[in-house]
Write a protein that binds this DNA or RNA. Structure first.
Lengths: 141, 141
DNA sequence: CGGCATCCGAAGTGATACTG
DNA sequence: CAGTATCACTTCGGATGCCG
């Protein structure tokens, strides 16, 4: 086994890493987070978690996304095996997107992130406010 | 309650969203993911999960990070209330970083992401390989 | 030691126009 | 409908130099 985990519950008592790999690699976790962390992926995955969607349906369901970014987002998800793309050679063309089982297994994590975000959203907003008040000149945002 | 969740386990049977908020807002989940998805935050959090670290200790523990990016990363974590920063006015100066309880609570999620990444890393790599083989001209990477 | 200021290239994103 | 192509703008990240 080249990866290890240790649950961390209490501050200042932990000595072993939460995540590590043999040569300090991240075993793809940052790849995943970098993908989920972009502007649209999570919103598209959440919409697809509800069922099969056509291209325009997705675009209408994710307000503000451009055609270009929707294309890029679903392409990358397809490349990673999280989304399947089915082309029906009709006129007009019809393309259906659907989460794969792998993609569906990720919705659990997305939900866990949403839970955490929701639970601690106020705390983070408060922390940012007081930090900004204490550092009015800072460019960090 | 303005946020709702529905577990999704089986494909093509889900009709309710995994994550939603009243006006289609993401309740901070993309904020969080965008932060965790950057190049260094997770690595810094993982290192700090092991205990208190000084600035240079952190930099040595996270190979490849520049002074600038380490500063930005810990500043943003501090602003969000995930990391505390303690300055000892000694000569030379000594600054200690430590996860707050809020930050520690996030290590659970990081571990869940790492678990998922580890479990499905091979599947994703394989999927990317065959996609790249099937789309040799594509710029998507 | 622990930063900050500056410059530069790379990547992400948006708007627009065009196509099978 | 479902894209592709191009351009412009913004953000991210690395390198370097300076400072208390």
């Amino acid at each position: 086994m080249s990866v290890g985990h240790t649950a961390v519950t209490t501050p200042a008592e932990e000595t072993r890493p939460v995540v590590w790999c043999e040569e300090g690699v991240d075993c793809g976790i940052r790849d995943l987070l970098h993908r989920l962390g972009d502007r649209w992926t999570v919103l598209v995955v959440v919409e697809l978690a509800q069922g099969v969607r056509r291209f325009r349906e997705l675009q209408r369901a994710v307000p503000g996304i451009s055609q270009r970014m929707l294309t890029l987002t679903v392409r990358r998800l397809e490349r990673d095996g999280l989304v399947s793309r089915t082309v029906h050679p009709t006129i007009p063309p019809q393309v259906e997107y659907e989460l794969t089982p792998l993609g569906h297994s990720l919705t659990h994590l997305v939900r866990a992130m949403a839970d955490w975000s929701y639970d601690h959203h106020d705390a983070i907003v408060d922390s940012r406010q007081s930090w900004d008040a204490a550092n009015p000149e800072s460019e960090i945002r």
